[in-house]
Amino acid sequence: MTAPGKPGWWIYQGHGLPPDAGTEPPELPDPPGWRAFDGGPPLPTPPASDAEFVRRLGVPSPISASDAAVDEIQTVNAALYLRRPLLVTGNPGTGKSSLAHKVARELGLGPVLQWPISSRTAFRDGLWEYDAIGRVQAATTEQGDDIGGFVRLGPLGTALLPYDRPRVLLIDELDKSDIHLPNDLLAVFEDGEFEIQPLARVAATQPEVTVFTHDRGGQATVREGRVRCRAFPFVVITSNGEREFPPAFLRRCLRLEMPQPGLEQLVSIVAAHFQEVPLRGQDLIREFVASSEREGGLANDQLLNAMHLATSGAYLPDENWALLRDALWQRLNVGGTD
Rank of each mutant, 00 (worst) to 15 (best):
residue 76 V to K: 05
residue 198 P to L: 02
residue 80 L to C: 09
residue 312 S to T: 11
residue 69 A to I: 02
residue 109 L to M: 07
residue 101 H to R: 07
residue 272 A to Q: 07
residue 317 P to W: 04
residue 77 N to M: 00
residue 336 G to E: 03
residue 287 E to I: 00
residue 37 F to A: 06
residue 261 P to F: 06
residue 228 R to M: 02
residue 14 G to A: 14
residue 93 G to M: 03
residue 96 K to I: 00
residue 136 V to H: 08
residue 313 G to M: 03
residue 92 P to C: 04
residue 65 A to Q: 05
residue 106 E to S: 12
residue 35 R to T: 00
residue 91 N to T: 06
residue 164 D to R: 14
residue 319 E to C: 04
residue 242 E to I: 07
residue 257 E to S: 15
residue 19 P to A: 01
residue 10 W to I: 03
residue 294 R to N: 12
residue 303 L to C: 03
residue 64 S to E: 13
residue 176 K to V: 05
residue 270 V to T: 11
residue 102 K to Y: 10
residue 25 P to Q: 11
residue 299 A to L: 08
residue 216 R to Q: 09
residue 131 D to T: 08
residue 253 C to E: 00
residue 33 G to V: 05
residue 69 A to S: 13
residue 286 R to M: 03
residue 22 G to P: 02
residue 205 T to D: 15
residue 317 P to D: 15
residue 143 Q to N: 12
residue 192 G to Y: 07
residue 93 G to D: 07
residue 200 A to M: 06
residue 276 E to Y: 13
residue 144 G to L: 01
residue 311 T to S: 13
residue 6 K to E: 15
residue 236 V to W: 08
residue 215 D to M: 08
residue 132 A to H: 12
residue 281 G to W: 01
residue 147 I to M: 10
residue 190 E to M: 09
residue 134 G to Q: 05
residue 238 T to K: 07
residue 306 A to P: 15
residue 13 Q to A: 15
residue 8 G to L: 13
residue 7 P to T: 00
residue 187 A to F: 02
residue 242 E to T: 10
residue 80 L to A: 09
residue 205 T to A: 15
residue 262 G to C: 02
residue 150 F to R: 05
residue 77 N to V: 00
residue 174 L to G: 11
residue 22 G to H: 00
residue 268 S to I: 01
residue 274 F to K: 10
residue 90 G to K: 02
residue 118 S to P: 06
residue 260 Q to G: 14
residue 118 S to K: 08
residue 228 R to D: 09
residue 280 R to F: 13
residue 236 V to I: 04
residue 24 E to W: 10
residue 65 A to I: 05
residue 337 T to F: 15
residue 73 I to M: 06
residue 114 Q to W: 08
residue 290 A to F: 08
residue 84 R to T: 02
residue 292 S to W: 01
residue 246 P to M: 06
residue 98 S to L: 12
residue 283 D to K: 14
residue 160 L to K: 11
residue 16 G to N: 03
residue 318 D to G: 08
residue 64 S to W: 00
residue 46 P to D: 01
residue 56 R to P: 12
residue 329 W to H: 13
residue 298 L to M: 03
residue 34 W to K: 14
residue 231 A to L: 07
residue 88 V to H: 14
residue 212 F to S: 13
residue 37 F to Q: 04
residue 195 E to I: 05
residue 39 G to E: 04
residue 141 T to K: 05
residue 144 G to W: 02
residue 71 D to N: 13
residue 71 D to L: 14
residue 261 P to M: 01
residue 179 I to A: 15
residue 199 L to A: 09
residue 225 G to E: 02
residue 291 S to A: 15
residue 52 E to C: 06
residue 49 S to P: 00
residue 301 D to G: 01
residue 43 L to H: 10
residue 183 N to P: 06
residue 31 P to H: 07
residue 83 R to V: 01
residue 252 R to H: 09
residue 268 S to P: 11
residue 248 A to F: 03
residue 242 E to S: 15
residue 236 V to Y: 09
residue 318 D to R: 08
residue 298 L to T: 02
residue 217 G to W: 05
residue 100 A to H: 07
residue 298 L to D: 07
residue 176 K to P: 14
residue 232 F to P: 12
residue 61 S to N: 12
residue 139 A to R: 13
residue 217 G to K: 04
residue 140 T to G: 14
residue 59 V to Q: 13
residue 165 R to M: 00
residue 251 R to N: 13
residue 79 A to P: 03
residue 1 M to S: 13
residue 235 V to E: 10
residue 230 R to I: 02
residue 189 F to D: 11
residue 254 L to P: 14
residue 174 L to K: 00
residue 195 E to S: 14
residue 211 V to R: 09
residue 170 L to T: 12
residue 152 R to Q: 11
